[in-house]
Design a protein around this nucleic acid. Structure first.
Lengths: 223, 223
DNA sequence: GACTCAATGTTGCTCTTGTCAACATATTCT
DNA sequence: AGAATATGTTGACAAGAGCAACATTGAGTC
């Protein structure tokens, strides 16, 4: 009889699933290529037939994460009635994902190539694009409904993303001292506050600039 | 003559400085205890006399980072005239630090113990406390000046921190597609928007709640 | 001053990991 | 069937974390 099995059915996927599970358990620091192989029941070098390197596998995990994130946001925002409400819920979905899979989020965002290599980066950016588009579309819808000021939606989207991402990261790190549920409630209130500030600009523009040239200039020139 | 030197003057500090420099160059992933030792001109095991482990050294690096961050924020906010302006500048200082020492920030926040061990964590939290207090005091001053609504300043501070931290992390990761200067300018505008939204609550409260029970309840029960 | 002792460095392991190279088997195409 | 390719396997190697045993220094202490 033949001693070894060789040929695994869809090993690539098996490895990916094992990797996702392992990341969830031990985080990026404890993550090891050999352990993934072990869990998939193959030799320590089998993964190299499907992934270029450890980082390449991690990148695949990140990609999977962005898909999950996109789904989560879409599912969470669905029940919202008004555009602005859907926008808020979209942010809540982001944080909900983060609190549910903190290690996954870390892989998605903190796997960055230390020296900003603009070559490789492109593909990684592209991965998260769909998730960002969900947010961007919510912003556009809110603009169309008159809930947010018209104009380039990008700055608004990036600001909203920043707020939500910050809550997610700090929440994960325990810096907010809130559990998952409370963190999401907090996100909802924070989003309302931010969007309130954005909306303000169309109604009361004058108030935004107390002293047109004071520290405003300083911040651009001195830093 | 004696062949070896032994006894190093203040090796602990030398190691720390080497570690900080190394982190700046190669990031947490490329960081290696042995390379630190090499740069300090000692054997690969010398660091163990001053730090329990690799992670312990990294923690010291993080601590050093929080001190720098605190200084940076204080220095940046100083020229601000009004409380609200100082608050904005405080956030800009945070982002400025992040863009200047991205790897350092990563060590400070993403070194987290994957499973939330509430034992060890305490000390790490304590480290960043001073930096947070700078922000908190700015918030309180703005409240006292009537620029922000009175009441518990914590939610306001945490929201502001989240926004700024999010900008910092996304900026570092290249997700904002802005250089350091533009990122800080962006931070300034985002902060103005957020604080505008916070201030709004004291003047026009009614508008904040479009549909008191719609998806609001959903977000608390379903997630 | 000689002796003891703790602090601090050093060398030399062991174990684990990422990755490369060489080899074996399975599949596909002709 | 036979060749070429894809996919796994075993067996190296270098590098790093951390442990243990040894060496040197400096501070007391008699």
């Amino acid at each position: 009889m033949p001693a070894k099995t060789y040929h695994h059915p869809d090993l690539r996927n098996t490895l990916l699933e094992a990797a996702v599970a392992l990341i969830g358990e031990v985080g990026p620091r404890g993550f090891t290529l050999r352990e993934v192989a072990r869990r998939a029941g193959v030799s320590h070098n089998a993964p190299y037939r499907h992934f270029d390197s450890r980082d390449d596998l991690l990148l695949a995990v990140a990609l999977e994460g962005f898909e999950r994130l996109t789904e989560r946001m879409q599912k969470t925002l669905a029940p919202g009635k008004t555009p602005i409400e859907r926008l808020e819920l979209c942010g809540c979905g982001y944080v909900d994902f983060a609190m549910g899979w903190p290690n996954h989020l870390q892989v998605m965002f903190d796997l960055a190539p230390a020296p900003h290599t603009h070559g490789q980066r492109q593909s990684h950016d592209h991965v998260g694009e769909n998730a960002f588009l969900v947010l961007l579309n919510c912003i556009k819808a809110a603009q169309a409904a008159g809930d947010l000021p018209a104009g380039d939606p990008m700055p608004l989207a990036l600001t909203a993303w920043s707020l939500v991402h910050g809550i997610a990261k700090l929440g994960i790190g325990g810096n907010l001292q809130l559990d998952r549920k409370a963190t999401i409630a907090f996100t909802h209130r924070a989003a309302q506050t931010l969007f309130g500030g954005m909306a303000k600009k169309i109604t009361t523009v004058a108030e935004s600039r107390p002293a047109p040239g004071a520290a405003h200039a300083k911040v651009k020139n001195e830093l």
